[in-house]
Amino acid sequence: MNPELLFFLETVIGGLMAGVMYALVALGFVLIFKASGIFNFAQGVMCLFAALALYDFMAPGGWVDRWFGFTFPVWAAIALTIVVMIILAWVIERFVLQYLVQQEPIILFMATIGLAYVLEGVGDILFGSDVKPLDIGLPQGASDWLLDNFNLYVEKLEVVAAVTAAVLVTVLAVFFQRTRIGRALRAVADDHQAALSVGISLRTIWVIVWSVSGIVALVAGIMWGSKSGVQFSLSLIALKALPVLILGGFTSVPGAIVGGLIIGVGEKIAEVYLGPLVGGAIENWFAYMLALAFLLFRPQGLFGERIIERV
């Protein structure tokens, strides 16, 4: 194959894979925003927290090791971390959200900022702030098959991430569209009072939705952690999810995926082909410029519901 074209393909694939990672984080935001209208600033920290907990359950020298003298195998550690995220969701509902029902969105947003700092602090105290290599046995390195047959360099881990994201989105879509709880989630998102009148419990729904987005955060945390180690800068990928959401729309699950992919590919291509013209390093801010352009012309995003508000 033509090396120019090959290089372009590699850039696009690299971008798509990075985009999947962003999409995984954005997905957690969308879930909570859909069901409660809260922009959860703590989503990135939840990814970090989940990854830290997972690491601790299975790493020598973690709490479990120090207290009980053994560590959990990978599958048990993942199951336990899911339990931790569900408990976390319950605690958040019980001690934060419950008191903020019917408050302005901005107040709930502020509460999640507070939550982000609390979680980060607790994570630091419990697990320490050093970078931890997370290895749950996901394949590493480049795919030999693609390299041999097509001369393409693609990381195996990124393929795994892409497949995982696809499965996750399919499961969530079925859950949202076909089941009673899924319908209840959409109902709560649309109208709190009407949802109450048909016997849907807001509090249960909130715990469920925070749990689900906690589990999504765990998946994202595993992928990012396997790629670049569990470190506190993980919480900053939440900021990268913001342009993804603006592109895809805050209320759309498919939007989070498509938005993630566009941002991922867009910033890679911009870096490689546009970068040299302006002195490079545009990967870091390109996503935000793209989001800004979107805000000017299509503020509800590609898939979001048009929001008409009386002012």
Partner: peptide, 23 residues
């Protein structure tokens, strides 16, 4: 029912009525 209709606007007629089966 409500004075100012409180339906789940994004959902279909069928899904709206299905929510009534919630309990």
């Amino acid at each position: 029912t409500f004075q100012n209709i409180a339906l789940f606007k994004g959902m279909s007629t069928l899904d709206n009525i299905m929510t009534g089966r919630n309990t």
